[in-house]
Amino acid sequence: QTVQFNGLEYHFPNPEEAEKFAKKVAKELGGEVRVKDGRWQID
Rank of each mutant, 00 (worst) to 15 (best):
I42W: 05
K27V: 08
G7W: 04
E9V: 14
E16F: 11
K20N: 08
L8S: 08
A26M: 06
L8N: 10
R39M: 13
V35D: 04
L29P: 02
Q41N: 07
K23T: 08
E19F: 11
T2H: 05
E16W: 13
F5S: 02
G30D: 06
L8A: 10
E28K: 10
P15F: 11
A18R: 01
F12M: 02
G31W: 12
A26R: 03
F21V: 01
Q41D: 07
E19R: 08
G7A: 04
P15K: 11
G7F: 04
K24Y: 11
E19I: 07
F21M: 01
Y10W: 12
K23G: 04
R39L: 12
E28A: 12
H11A: 07
P13W: 08
E19V: 05
G7E: 04
E32S: 13
E17V: 05
P13T: 12
Q41L: 14
E28P: 03
K27F: 11
V25D: 00
K24R: 12
F21H: 00
L8W: 12
K27T: 09
K23N: 10
E32H: 12
G31E: 05
N6Q: 09
A18N: 00
G38P: 02
G31Q: 07
N6T: 02
N14P: 00
D37N: 12
V35H: 11
Q4R: 12
K20A: 13
K27R: 11
P13N: 12
H11V: 10
W40E: 02
E28L: 14
K20I: 10
E16C: 14
L29T: 13
G30Y: 05
V3R: 01
V35A: 07
F5L: 09
Q41V: 15
K24T: 08
R39H: 10
V25A: 06
D43K: 10
D37T: 03
V3A: 02
K24S: 09
I42K: 02
A26T: 04
A18L: 02
R34N: 08
R39E: 06
K36S: 09
I42P: 02
V3F: 06
K27W: 11
V35P: 03
A26Q: 06
V3C: 06
G31I: 13
D43P: 04
Y10M: 06
V3Y: 03
K20D: 07
A22M: 05
K36V: 14
E17A: 11
D43R: 11
V35E: 07
E28W: 14
G38M: 03
L29V: 14
P13K: 11
A26F: 05
V35S: 06
V35Y: 15
Q1I: 10
E32A: 11
F12E: 00
K36F: 07
K23A: 08
E16L: 09
Q1V: 11
E32W: 11
V35W: 15
N6W: 11
F5A: 04
D43N: 11
F21N: 00
K36G: 05
A22G: 01
E17C: 14
E19C: 15
L29A: 06
F5C: 11
G30L: 05
D43A: 12
Q4H: 12
Q1E: 07
G7C: 15
K20T: 09
R34A: 08
K20Q: 11
K24N: 07
V33Q: 02
N14W: 03
E9N: 09
K24V: 06
A22L: 05
F21L: 01
V35K: 07
A22V: 06
R34W: 12
E28M: 13
A18M: 01
V33C: 15
N6F: 10
E32G: 06
N14S: 13
G7L: 04
L8D: 06
V25E: 01
P15M: 10
K23S: 07
G30E: 05
P13L: 10
I42G: 03
P15N: 08
G7D: 05
E19A: 08
P13S: 12
T2V: 14
K23L: 12
V25S: 03
G7Y: 04
A22R: 04
A26G: 05
E17W: 05
W40N: 02
G31N: 04
L29E: 05
A26H: 04
I42T: 03
E16G: 07
I42M: 03
Y10S: 00
G38W: 03
E28C: 15
Q41H: 13
N6E: 06
W40T: 03
G30H: 07
E28I: 12
N14M: 03
E28V: 10
G31V: 15
K27A: 13
Q4V: 15
W40M: 03
G38F: 03
A18P: 00
Q1G: 10
E9W: 11
E16A: 10
